[in-house]
Amino acid sequence: MKILYLFNYWIVIVIMLAGLYAVIASSNLVKKIAGLSIFQASVFILYISSGKILGGTAPIVDSSVPADVVFSNPLPHVLILTAIVVGVATTAVGAALIIRIHRAYGSIEENEILEYEE
């Protein structure tokens, strides 16, 4: 059952490679940005999975909570919140660039744009 136990991490690897493949293999700039977002999302899952402790509960310290309760680590969630903001900003800048590239070249296919550049 070791494989199922690491289920989250298998998913991370699959999503990561799928995203990276989309960035490298697609010629359409929008698909590249989408691939980049998928790639980043895999890292978000990696962080959040590492914060979960089996049997751990929400990390709210209160006097009514018994002393032997195990808490999940909240810090990875906070860290990844920052990284999600960074990811959204990257996608936004990328999308804005694509709009301007479309205005300047009339295309968002990388191979067509490169033909104009020749």
Partner: peptide, 10 residues
Amino acid sequence: ALLASFRYLI
């Protein structure tokens, strides 16, 4: 410049 910037972004 736009394409250069986009590639750098990726």
